[in-house]
Design a protein around this nucleic acid. Structure first.
Length: 512
DNA sequence: TCCTCAGGGCCATAG
DNA sequence: CTATGGCCCTGAGGA
């Protein structure tokens, strides 16, 4: 082996930051940028051989084989598909086989690196989970900043146009929603017919907004949110009568509500098992949420003309927006969340909204999702492969990563209690900048953390490390949520997002 | 001019 | 036998 240096002479200091990251294809250690993004050495070699030798693989399974360090060799077909899905570029493999030099992606790699650095800087300044178990942050979105012209086309196009959507057995009423996928490409959205202005009726005086830090003017006016006539309060958490939303909310009532909210009876005085049931009390009923979203979408579509129908991406945004609204409501009605200052409530929600959305999505997939399908809040399902094959690189990567996480959570058999705890752990993040009652937030997070630990130990004694395994999933949730924000922001810049939505407001609050 | 680092080649090893 | 993956060589472009 003439090229190989003797083992002892190897200088082995490789402490480059990227070596900490994991390969988006198989999770192995990243060795550098290869064919468009950071990957491991083996996936680099695999991709190179596949392209150079013009390989055509066939999957003997369902084309959704698990891809990790130990199983990556099993199915070259799925491996190659995943390489493409996360954004590896065939054109980066040289036809002339010339060695050395730099390729045309040089500037993109540089930009990607800068973005990562910025993210890292931001993350170290707003370090997230106090119980941090990870020593590094997960890979930032790779392909997103590496979009070449041809991929940005797919970004701006309606990737769901040809997606097969069909109602599931769970959400039967979904069949009535005009979600045909050949909807016109309506990028120039008219203001939403959802009566959002009503939701903007009040702001928070003296809030951070006045300092010009954000524009979180979204009122928490549940009662004004347009819902199906028969399910007017379906969005109100069922078992929180004491904390039912104020019908005509004003900033003053909101503030007084918060300030008079049991300051002398902190949640720490509640026994843990009661505490856990208390956390579970505010959970939304999935069928009610489903009905509400369907009703809202149906109304939206019926208000539009034949040629003015929302395209599928816009529908997805609406779904996300309504879900997000529900999550904000969930937090607002939570007894322990009401114990903290309104200003803190706002910054916490602003900081974690996308993580809550991702967690919510994950829970839905674990609970209802079929193998190889994405289960929507409306009860409809979309085949993952259809999306993977038709979406742009950014969305493909997002879907792929999210589905990987879904698989992991399914294996862990995440239950409802654990899911609620994860939501609260994400919500009560004492490391969010400008949180005033840091100690209080920290204590609540610790309490939730303890409740989760005790629950997993009591209910899953056979699975001794379930608690640790669950916490280890949170950095990936965080990472995916950042990627979601980036993706949405890019589409927002393309004019694809409805402007008067909570989603857009939340996006703006961060990007400002 | 030197250094960096991504693409290509080599080859021990696994299956 | 072929595929894999770790290691090294190469050389354009940047400092």
């Amino acid at each position: 082996l003439k090229h190989k240096k003797p083992q002892e002479s190897k200088t082995e200091p490789d402490s480059r930051p990227q070596s900490e990251e994991s390969c988006p294809i198989c999770g192995d250690k990243v060795s550098g940028y290869h064919y468009g993004l950071l990957t491991c050495e083996s996936c680099k070699g695999f991709f190179k051989r596949s392209v150079q030798n013009n390989k055509h693989y066939t999957c003997v399974e369902q084309q959704n084989c698990p891809m990790n360090l130990s199983q990556r060799k099993r199915c070259p077909s799925c491996r190659f598909q995943k390489c493409l899905a996360v954004g590896m570029k065939r054109e980066a493999v040289r036809a002339d086989r010339m060695r050395g030099g730099r390729n045309k992606f040089g500037p993109l790699y540089r930009r990607d690196r800068q973005m990562k650095q910025q993210k890292l800087y931001h993350q170290t300044n707003t370090a997230t989970y106090r119980f941090r178990m990870e020593t590094h942050w997960p890979t930032a979105p790779h392909d997103f900043h590496l979009m070449s012209n041809h991929t940005s086309v797919s970004l701006s196009s309606d990737v769901f146009n040809k997606t097969h959507m069909y109602p599931s057995s769970v959400g039967q009423s979904a069949a009535h929603i005009p979600l045909d996928c050949a909807m016109n490409e309506d990028r120039n959205l008219s203001p939403p017919s959802l009566s959002y202005p009503e939701l903007y009726c009040c702001t928070f005086p003296g809030s951070v907004q006045e300092k010009g830090e954000m524009s979180f003017s979204y009122s928490f006016a549940t009662a004004n949110y347009p819902v199906h006539p028969t399910s007017n309060d379906s969005f109100t958490p069922r078992s929180t009568p004491a904390s039912s939303p104020c019908p005509t909310p004003s900033s003053s009532t909101l503030l007084s509500q918060a300030s008079t909210q049991a300051p002398d009876t902190p949640s720490s005085s509640i026994p843990t098992n009661n505490f856990l049931s208390q956390l579970l009390e505010g959970e939304q009923d999935e069928s009610q949420l489903c009905a509400k979203v369907l009703a809202s979408l149906q109304r939206e579509q019926s208000n539009r003309g034949k040629h003015d129908r929302l395209n599928t991406f816009s529908i997805m945004c609406k779904m996300a927006d309504l879900t997000l609204f529900g999550l904000v409501e969930w937090a607002r009605n939570s007894t322990i969340f009401k114990e903290i200052k309104v200003e803190d409530q706002m910054v916490l929600l602003q900081s974690c909204w996308s993580e809550l959305l991702v967690l919510d999505h994950l829970c839905r997939q674990v609970t209802y999702g079929r193998e190889g399908c994405i289960y929507l809040v409306t009860g409809q399902q979309i085949e993952v492969l259809t999306i993977i094959s038709q979406a742009g690189a950014a969305l493909r990567s997002l879907v792929s990563r999210t589905q990987d996480l879904v698989s992991k959570l399914k294996i862990l058999q995440l239950d409802r209690h654990e899911f609620v705890c994860l939501k609260y752990l994400v919500l009560f993040n004492p490391d969010v900048k400008s949180v005033q009652s840091r100690r209080q937030v920290e204590q609540t997070q610790e309490k939730v953390n303890r409740a989760l630990m005790e629950h997993t130990q009591q209910n899953h004694p056979g699975h001794s490390d379930k608690f640790g395994q669950l916490l280890l999933r949170l950095p990936e949730v965080r990472s995916i949520s950042l990627q979601v924000e980036e993706y949405l922001y890019q589409r927002h810049l393309l004019g694809d997002l409805p402007c008067n939505s909570l989603l857009t407001e939340m996006l703006h609050s961060k990007h400002n």
